[in-house]
Write a protein that binds this DNA or RNA. Structure first.
Length: 538
DNA sequence: AACAAGTCCAACCGCTCTATT
DNA sequence: GAATAGAGCGGTTGGACTTGT
């Protein structure tokens, strides 16, 4: 880029290059009064650097300035070389294969851009990072899942394999250990989910929003204050994860389900797909009938045929977006939450970390369900007592940090992993969605644009927006799941534990037959008017 | 055509890790 | 073992570019 720099023929130092002070790597030069240049590189500088590397090879970057006359710090030289000058760099847009690989790698590694770049010859970590960040923003705006379902499923399987192999470590340890394998899939087994996998392959994704303490954090934050708008967006995304704790049936600390019932503000419910004005649509519509009614909020030129954004539906209900924005500003709550400061891989943005946590929760739920309906005073000891694997206890302790493992926004993760609000009990029927009291379900068609094998025919789903849009990806890919909503119900019940699970199943299977397909969002909170009656929402 | 909003991306910054002294 | 330097990584920023109104 040569946007602002005056490019001189010698290219080494132009008149606007000496304004910035030396940074930390200019130490040697600082003593000699040499001011290093910052900002865009000129072609002459590039040439000097290339020439230098040809002669001396890579590395020892701080020597570049000394030996080549280039007024750049070593760090800058390294970056320039690595990102732009080194041979075999691939320029231009990512190919479809690369995009898919990036997503797969991110599902496994999280924001480990450098390691991801190692899997993409010719691509730089910066490039991948930029791509991912823009993609995240896009998809979050659109309320779409970041990962395709099979990635989550694959991650689960890999994690199970690792567990079988006896690789079992806690926090950072397992992280590092797994790095050696090129993957960072935690050795996690979802005990409570194993039994369901044959019929519910995507259940493991549900725990994405199960970070137990997130409930308190999220709720607390709703009542307290939002993050200052000055907070960086990425940070807000990270902090936002706790908001989805409400999904967790196993509640840590003193927060009770009743509390949630009484106190949960609309903003909490909305991302769950509970709060949107949902209107039953009695008139079965064919996908065609919607024609162009589905408004796509995707920027032009950004959702090309090869764009990963086509994973999910491209329909992006605005309310959800607003919700996302609101939620990502929510700070970590204080008070009842165990705010351990201990760093945890759960902040790494790893999908596997979520799975890991989910497993822990699953263990906990299996044994604490009898107590949890009214009281959330489940202690690690309680969990350990009934946990089938010691890992549960250990990891619970290790993960005293209630923060989510994810580096993504809560909404996005919820979107990724929660088949909420799937409409009607089957695609074939496309029955109007009946919902809980006070809520109207508005069915809208969602055009499925993405499938693992891209050539696959697309499917139009009627889902209750907005979160249903997110679920549609999985619905499409698991016909059994789609056709038999009880699968989902059972799975969610399993996740919720005995008490909440049975309650959930009762509500789902009993009171509202047609709402089965709605999943947790529409059913489990059936009796939560404070949450559900959102008819005033846009 | 002008402006605003959104997007992209190169580069910087701060931090951590590792090797060396 | 402590201090220091170098290298690398991930997060963030700022400005050019693109698109929409």
């Amino acid at each position: 880029m040569s946007r602002t720099t005056i490019e001189s023929d010698d290219g080494v130092l132009s008149k606007d290059q000496t304004e910035s002070p030396l940074n930390d790597e200019g130490g040697g030069s600082a003593g000699r009064g040499i001011v290093l240049k910052k900002g865009p590189w000129t072609s002459a500088e590039d040439a000097i650097l290339i020439d230098y590397v040809k002669k001396h090879g890579e590395g020892n970057w701080n020597a570049v300035q000394k030996n080549s006359g280039l007024f750049r710090c070593g760090k800058s030289c390294r970056l320039r070389w690595a990102n732009h000058l080194r041979p075999n760099l691939k320029k231009g847009a990512f190919t479809q294969e690369e995009e898919q690989l990036i997503v797969e790698l991110h599902a496994k590694m999280g924001n480990k851009w450098a390691r991801m770049a190692a899997h993409l010859p010719g691509r730089t970590d910066n490039e991948i990072k930029n791509y991912w960040n823009t993609r995240i923003k896009r998809r979050q705006r659109a309320g779409l899942p970041l990962y395709p379902p099979e990635l989550s499923f694959q991650a689960l399987h890999e994690s199970q394999s690792q567990n079988i192999n006896g690789i079992n470590s806690g926090d950072k340890g397992h992280h590092d250990l797994l790095q050696g394998n090129g993957y960072e899939i935690p050795d996690v087994v979802f005990d409570s989910l194993k039994a369901n996998q044959s019929v519910l392959p995507y259940v493991p994704e549900l725990p994405d929003i199960t970070a137990s303490s997130m409930l308190m954090k999220g709720l607390g934050s709703q009542y307290c204050s939002f993050m200052p708008p000055t907070m960086h967006r990425q940070k807000r995304l990270r902090e936002s994860m706790p908001l989805f704790a409400g999904y967790s049936g196993r509640i840590k600390n003193e927060f009770t389900f009743d509390q949630f019932h009484n106190d949960v503000p609309d903003k909490i419910a909305r991302p769950f797909g509970l709060s949107f004005p949902l209107e039953p649509d009695p008139s079965p519509k064919t996908p065609e009938s919607f024609g162009g009614a589905v408004k796509l909020e995707l920027p032009s030129l950004q959702y090309t045929e090869t764009d990963l954004g086509s994973w999910g539906t491209s329909s992006s209900p605005q309310p959800l977006l607003e919700t996302v924005d609101a939620f990502i500003q929510s700070p970590p709550p204080t008070g009842t939450v165990d705010d351990s400061d201990c760093p945890s891989p759960r902040n790494s943005g790893l999908l596997d970390a979520l799975l890991h946590e989910a497993k822990t929760l699953g263990c906990a739920k299996n044994h604490s369900s009898d107590k949890s309906s009214n009281s959330s005073s489940v202690t690690p000891a309680d969990i350990a007592d009934s946990c089938t694997l010691n890992i549960c206890e250990t990891e619970w302790e290790d993960y005293g940090d209630p923060l989510s493992p994810l580096g993504h926004s809560a909404t996005s993760l919820f979107n990724e992993c929660t088949p909420l609000s799937a409409s009607g009990s089957s695609l074939e029927e496309q029955a109007p969605v009946e919902t809980f009291v006070g809520c109207k379900v508005k069915s809208e068609p969602v055009e499925q644009a993405w499938s693992p094998d891209r050539g696959k025919e697309t499917t139009n789903l009627y889902v209750s927006q907005p979160d249903a849009l997110l679920a549609s990806d999985w619905l499409e890919q698991d016909s059994a799941y789609v056709k038999d909503p009880t699968i989902m119900t059972d799975a969610i019940a399993t996740l919720l534990g005995d008490d909440l699970g049975s309650e959930y199943k009762q509500m789902t299977m009993g009171s509202s037959t047609s709402s089965q397909g709605l999943g947790f969002g529409a059913c489990a909170w059936n009796n939560m008017p404070a949450v559900c009656q959102m008819s005033d929402l846009p």
